[in-house]
Design a protein around this nucleic acid. Sequence first.
RNA 1: GGCCCUAUCGUCUAACGGUUAGGACGGAGCCUUCUCAAGGCUUAAAUCCGGGUUCGAUUCCCGGUAGGGUCACCA
Length: 430
Amino acid sequence: MSVVTRFAPSPTGFLHAGNYRTAVFAYLYAKHHGGEFIVRIEDTDRERSKPEYEHNILEALSWLELPADKQFRQSEQAGRHRELLEKLISEGTAYVSKEAPKEPGGREEVIRFKNPGGVVTFADVIRGNISIDVDELHDFVIARSLDEPVFHFAVVVDDADEGVTHVIRGEDHISNTPRQILIQRALGFSTPAYAHLPLILGTDRTKLSKRRGAKALTEYRDVGVLPEAMLNYLAFLGWNPGDEREYMSKEELIAAFDLARVHKGSAIFDEVKLRSVNQHWMRKLSDQEFVARGDLDPSALLAVPLLKERAQTFEEARELLATELRCLFETPVPEKESLLRKEPEAGKTATHLTHSLDLIGLLPDHASPEEVKARLMPYADQEGRAAVLWPLRYALSGQERSPDPFTLVSILGESESNARIRSALDILNR
RNA sequence: GGCCCUAUCGUCUAACGGUUAGGACGGAGCCUUCUCAAGGCUUAAAUCCGGGUUCGAUUCCCGGUAGGGUCACCA
């Protein structure tokens, strides 16, 4: 039997990392078994479902590269839901119930399921047998009206119609499972395998939720997190391949994924770790890819090696470009006092700068930082590194903190370096 | 509160009865070093508690405790 899994979000808000972790597992499991991954937008709550949320969900899924083999809205199955609702009513396993509206404007009739009671036991792939006494559920509501099925009913019908073999969802659904199984039995459907995933918690150790400040997943995309990094990080929340690997591509994840290695205990979403995983994937990009995928200005290309060392997100890369690495793109305005930070005697500092200037002049075009270093270090060692290198670096950058002078010369090139050193010499002579 | 689920360093986790309880992120220290990064090395840090079972428990069982989830005409 081929595997069919599904991700069934409701478009009533922006989804957070915990929701997408579920999608990741469902996707990986299906693909590992060469099966099908279905995305079903559960929009039976007409009041709260919004197109913008649906768009956001689909956008996030495509960003993460979790393409659906089949995708549809639950509301598109309305006819089928009505048909089966009528069937249950005619068979007497469901009935129209007169209600006393609890709130003004509330409904006077709903459709309830005739609960047979007893204990429902199901085998959870992750947790083993779970038994729940179903008596206290009473005759629960399965539809507001024939055309408005409620979650439990629609889920059961759609999963069965689509041939879903494995229901992979958060453990907050464990207590919903028995009543869904009851409906399945009444409808004559078979029960799929259930895998209830441990929840992803926020730093407050409670279920990630928008109300408590959990970010929409797309916010991570917006600050320049790479989708392969997010996928990698999410996959490792509650699962691991069983070896020492920490960084895995989508293909590697598909090949290794297994429900049997999924944890039972919940995990906390840690942005610090996510950033470090992201940095790993940023560093794997070629310099050209880095600029393109980070949506950086093309001029930033020459700074990419430095950005790979310093930035954990593309947003950080942009900040760096505007602050610490700004000297690569703008002529610095050095201050005399800072030039003399390590060697207070202006005459000596001027001598060092002039000599450095000469040495730089001997460099070949496009000298690497290593070549620059090889040329300058003997002199610096002879005269004192701080006395030579500090004014040089400061003259080139105009910044107390910057990349080292060799790298600066290499990136800036000979003529720009020359100009900057000369202007620092002018300042010293004032 | 009822019901359900869970429990290894701060965090993510390895171990599927026998290990000096391993790795990663983060932290600390050292090295490198003109500054800032990066890099290298080192280091601190965990089996929730109590009973069993066993020659031997992180591991199996029971009981506590703690945390989480869920108790809708939302999904």
